[in-house]
Structures are given as structure tokens and as C-alpha cells.
């Protein structure tokens, strides 16, 4: 089935890209492989039938956040290679492997009440209805607008030359 093949390709590529993000010595290459990982996650959203989220992922993560990260890597250029070794090498590896192992074990051993997935519908109009509708998420939407405004003003105040 085409969706299964797409899932396996996206999953393998995204795991390798994520490994490259945390293991590569060159931070610029790490940022580029982070963009690859975000693109694969957008593809995973598409295989899950979340069309709007896939587009939002490409626009915000690849278009905005990655560019912001690459820009700040270029601003802090002379400390690129200095970040080679890790602060707490072995404890970090143990903690992350332990966490991943526990979550995978619990996932494989719990009985999910999965419903049969329906054929994917366009989700944009129903997402908009649940965001702006009567019994929806209008208040969190307004709060997130305030959060974005506060973040923009805070970032500008922080990086302003005194």
C-alpha cells in the first residue's frame, strides 16, 4: 500500500536526519538536516490526513524557525566548532535511551481502542470551525495571539543595541 511505503521512507529519513542534528559537529549542517527532518514530519502529517498541518509545518518550521536558527548560527559564527563534545555525555545518553525505551515498551504493551480510520477529508474548514466556532477554542486563539505579540516585542527588546 502506498501510504505504508511512504510512512516507512519518511520515518527512516526523519530518524536519520534527527540523529544528524544532535550528532554532527558542524552546527550549520545540523541546522540543514533539521530542515530535512521538519520536511519529513510534514510528510508524516500528510500521511495522517492532516493537510492543513502539513502546510503549516512547511511554512512555519521550515520557512520561519529554521531561517531564524540559521540566521543566529551565522551571527555566532566564531564558536561553531567549539561545541564538539558534550557536557554530560553518558548521563544524557542513558536518560534519553531510558525514556525512549519506557515509552516504546508502554506503547507496544497497551491496548489502544483504535477506530477504523476514515478516508481523509479536507480538514481546513472543520479546523477553522473548531478554532473560531461557538464551543471551540476562541479564547486560546486570542491568548496565543497575545503570546505571539509579547514574544515579538520581547525578542526586539532583547536584541536591541543599547
Amino acid at each position: 500500500m502506498a501510504l505504508d511505503i511512504a510512512f516507512w521512507i519518511l520515518a527512516v529519513v526523519s530518524v536519520f536526519a534527527a540523529l544528524a542534528v544532535v550528532l554532527l559537529r558542524n552546527i550549520f549542517r545540523a541546522a540543514l538536516s533539521m530542515m530535512v527532518c521538519f520536511l519529513m514530519v510534514a510528510g508524516l502529517y500528510a500521511t495522517l490526513g492532516a493537510d492543513l498541518l502539513a502546510v503549516v509545518q512547511v511554512i512555519i518550521y521550515i520557512g520561519a524557525i529554521s531561517i531564524l536558527i540559521i540566521l543566529s548560527i551565522m551571527f555566532t559564527r566564531d564558536v561553531w566548532q567549539a561545541s564538539s563534545s558534550s557536557v554530560v555525555g553518558l548521563p544524557a545518553i542513558v536518560a534519553s535511551v531510558l525514556f525512549g525505551g519506557v515509552v516504546i515498551f508502554l506503547t507496544l504493551n497497551s491496548r489502544w481502542q483504535t477506530a477504523a480510520p476514515a478516508a481523509p477529508q479536507p480538514t481546513t474548514s472543520s479546523l477553522g470551525a473548531s478554532l473560531f466556532g461557538q464551543a471551540g477554542y476562541a479564547l486560546p486563539l486570542e491568548i496565543s495571539a497575545g503570546l505571539l505579540l509579547a514574544a515579538v516585542i520581547g525578542a526586539m527588546v532583547l536584541v536591541r543595541e543599547k
Partner: peptide
């Protein structure tokens, strides 16, 4: 887990 390692273990 990979992201957790990147957060905890890198400088």
C-alpha cells in the same frame, strides 16, 4: 529521545 539527547548532552 533524540531531541532529549540533543537538549541534555550538547554544549
Amino acid at each position: 529521545s533524540i531531541g532529549l539527547y540533543g537538549t541534555l548532552g550538547r554544549r
